[in-house]
């Protein structure tokens, strides 16, 4: 019951979001399916959002939450365009992976 009374330290949230970010980053590096890579990016964005909210509470400032709001909107826009591009690619090359799209090599 004492545990329940004391608010949980911000470090836990921050640590969790660090791990979440790392998982997302690793996923981005090891997966080849462009869709899944995209999802990994979303994971990283969520980690960052969590950090913002944690700081917003820690500092008693809603500004952090407002930033998360903007991140959400931008993420939505990004997904829409990103998926549009992926659709364009996959329609013409079914089964293409990120490694197949290496036309821009130096």
């Amino acid at each position: 019951m004492i545990l329940a009374a004391t608010p949980i330290s911000a470090s836990w949230y921050l640590g969790l979001s660090a791990l979440l970010f790392t998982v997302g980053a690793v996923g981005l590096l090891v997966r080849r399916n462009p869709l899944v890579m995209f999802m990994c990016v979303e994971l990283m964005l969520n980690a960052v959002n969590l950090t913002f909210v944690t700081f917003a509470r820690e500092l008693d400032d809603v500004g952090g939450q407002v930033v998360v709001f903007f991140v959400l909107v931008v993420a939505a826009a990004e997904v829409v365009i990103g998926l549009g591009i992926i659709v364009g690619i996959l329609r013409r090359r079914p089964g293409a992976t990120a490694d197949d799209l290496s036309l821009l090599k130096g």
Partner: peptide
Amino acid sequence: VARGLQSGYVRSYALGVA
């Protein structure tokens, strides 16, 4: 010389960023 780094593989770039 540096052009070799530009492999065209997105994931290699991501690795660099990481």
